[in-house]
Amino acid sequence: MSNSIPRILLVEDNPNDVELTMAAFEANNLANEVFVVHDGELALDYLYRRGDYRLRTEGNPALILLDIKMPKVDGIEVLRIIKSDSALKSIPVVMLTSSREEQDLLETYSHGVNGYVVKPVDFQEFFDSVKQLGLFWAVINEAPPGSIGRE
């Protein structure tokens, strides 16, 4: 494995969910592709290369996995900012959330989300979901120009 720059930004405040998600990525050799931030504000700092992330390598992630319910800036607000910024709006964003509430679905799709995945309670299902998400967006899908490239 090379020291590749992470191509997936995982925005998730719950450490258990982070660990379980990372376990699924690890099992599929995708762990190196994932960079984790723990709230919406940090996600925006990362994307705009400011604050702690002002020195990070240039380029947009090939995928953002975004939780909805988070402290400070929630996932829907992060999504809204990303999709209304011409420099960021081409980044594929997939909501990865506990909620299958219709209002969340409607709101995120109205902001232009690229996918919406409900975290299943059953771990095996969850595992499969994360695996397929990672494989599709980070490996199979051609990321938009300006994304961090694959080594």
Partner: peptide
């Protein structure tokens, strides 16, 4: 409930599996 109650359950099944 939808947002908050499912998460700990998912963690239980997840960690049991691990």
């Amino acid at each position: 409930v939808s947002h908050d109650l499912r998460a700990p359950l998912r963690h239980i099944t997840g960690y049991v599996e691990l």
